[in-house]
């Protein structure tokens, strides 16, 4: 029988870490060793933080954001523009827009996009709640900030149709050349989209 150099609890922790995005077994071992060597500064605070988040995590019943309160901190923020709801596919998109500090609106997280091959239908997405929110009189614009993919656009067109009866303007993000993008470095898909969505200068 092979001798175990690492105790089973630590081995379990390494395996858990190796399942995280960006980490393999090798880097998971390094992370665990790093944490163990910094018990008071890192390991214990991390363990407490994980437990606290696990105990208090909530999905906002209004917008679908992840937070520790329901409604989430975005939904109860009085400084935000009530007239615009920015619709995103995933919480990570909401976070990206917040990081960039470009939106002062409210959000709505769909939780995915319509997908033919994956069999994702409108019932699987957070669309019913969006319609309710769009019909509130203060709301004037629904900005569809979905990804520029076939599935994202299919979903955006569907939502545009569904919102036809609500008294709101539906807008979507522009597509094309990114800021700082040089033509000869762009992929063909972006170039084609930019050409197709060209505007009068």
């Amino acid at each position: 029988m092979a001798r175990a150099a690492i105790g089973s609890e630590i081995e379990k922790l390494i395996r858990l870490f190796s399942g995280l995005p960006g980490l393999g077994l090798r880097s998971a071992r390094r992370v665990v060793l790093y944490l163990i060597k910094r018990e008071e500064q890192l390991l214990r605070p991390l363990s407490r933080a994980l437990e606290m988040v696990a105990d208090s995590i909530k999905i906002c019943s209004c917008c679908g954001n992840i937070d520790t309160t329901d409604p989430c901190c975005v939904c109860i923020d009085p400084k935000r523009d009530l007239s615009v709801i920015c619709v995103v596919e995933d919480v990570s998109d909401l976070w990206a827009l917040e990081r960039a500090r470009v939106m002062n609106s409210h959000y709505h997280v769909l939780g995915g996009v319509l997908s033919a091959l994956d069999g994702i239908s409108p019932h699987d997405l957070n669309i019913k709640r969006l319609i309710e929110r769009a019909c509130v009189p203060e709301v004037q614009e629904i900005l569809l900030a979905v990804n520029s993919t076939v599935e994202g656009h299919t979903t955006a067109h569907y939502i545009t149709d569904i919102l036809g009866d609500c008294n709101v303007r539906v807008s979507r993000l522009a597509q094309g050349i990114p800021v700082g993008g040089e033509l000869d470095y762009l992929d063909d898909g972006t170039l084609a989209a930019a050409i197709n969505a060209r505007t009068i200068f």
Binding site: L114, A116, L117, V150, A192, A193, N196
Partner: peptide, 19 residues
Amino acid sequence: ASELMNCPLALLALNVMNE
């Protein structure tokens, strides 16, 4: 794909065909 993205009916058709 990028040629069809602005035409909702064509995008739906593409999804139907691929399914």
